[in-house]
């Protein structure tokens, strides 16, 4: 059976392009673990924002494989070297994706609005001085500004525009990014969320969060406490407790970073 993820020795590289790292592996592991759901989801359009070396979009195409009959893959990066490297990585694995050099999904968001079924993002999430964000080259691979949230906070509303009604977003976050706060923001836009994978490395504690539109939460989001004790309320409560669990992690890990 062919390998289900991209193989490091076939991943192309360039001095100014982010090499697959713990965060990349964590996201791919989360996608692998969710493979059965992804296949049932039957995505038509899949997209990666910030594809870097191409490790993740290539892996997604391999994970879904032939069984995801005719899914169409697209990937963007703001770094022109990255999309070229991604092309080589895709070719080396015999899979295909459409590549666009652009800022997040600029030029695509208007026509692709509501059409994307799966979005994957490993954003630049490292807390840095704001001036370091978007300087280009390798620095834009990790520089995330205050709390590492600058680029993340730009991506989220765009992901919301792009995602179809059944769309899923998988995103890498760091404890320092306050995943709980991200969950809360997304809940206001009507998304439920779940941490699908958590992994602590020597330097960081990574959370892969999956978001999906929850039409039950949407109404509840604006007025959580007035919701009657129904199934919906329980759902909201479990979400809330998830987020407080997150803030618990944050308080415990926040000092180390």
């Amino acid at each position: 059976m062919p390998s289900r993820t991209a193989q490091i020795r076939f991943v192309s590289s360039h001095p100014e392009v982010y090499e697959p790292c713990d965060d990349s592996f964590a996201l791919v592991d989360a996608l692998l673990a969710d493979r059965t759901n992804l296949l049932e989801h039957r995505p038509t359009l899949c997209m990666e924002i910030g594809c870097g070396s191409g490790y993740i979009i290539t892996s997604l195409a391999l994970i879904l494989g032939q069984e995801a009959n005719g899914a169409y893959y697209m990937a963007t990066d703001i770094n022109p070297h990255a999309v070229k490297v991604t092309r080589e990585t895709l070719d080396a694995h015999g899979v295909d994706a459409e590549l666009i050099t652009t800022d997040i999904a600029s030029g695509l968001a208007r026509r692709l609005a509501g059409l994307v079924d799966v979005i994957v993002v490993n954003p630049p999430y490292v807390p840095t001085p704001e001036e370091e964000v978007g300087r280009g080259g390798i620095a834009s691979a990790w520089a995330g500004g205050e709390n590492g949230r600058s680029v993340i906070d730009k991506i989220l509303p765009i992901a919301d525009i792009l995602l179809s009604d059944k769309g899923w977003l998988y995103m890498v976050t760091l404890t320092a990014n306050s995943p709980s706060d991200i969950c809360r923001q997304m809940r206001q836009k009507g998304y439920a969320s779940r941490i699908v994978l958590q992994r602590s490395t020597e330097e960081e504690s990574l959370h892969i969060v999956k978001f999906w539109r929850d039409f039950d939460t949407q109404g509840a989001a604006s007025d959580i406490y007035s919701v009657k004790k129904t199934g919906h309320a329980n759902l909201v409560e479990s979400l809330l407790s998830q987020c407080s669990q997150l803030s618990f992690w944050r308080h415990n890990n926040g000092n180390s970073s």
Partner: peptide
């Protein structure tokens, strides 16, 4: 004009 090289459009402004 937004250039397309090696099949990749560049939409950077």
């Amino acid at each position: 004009k937004f250039p397309v090289n090696k099949g990749i459009p560049n939409m950077l402004l």
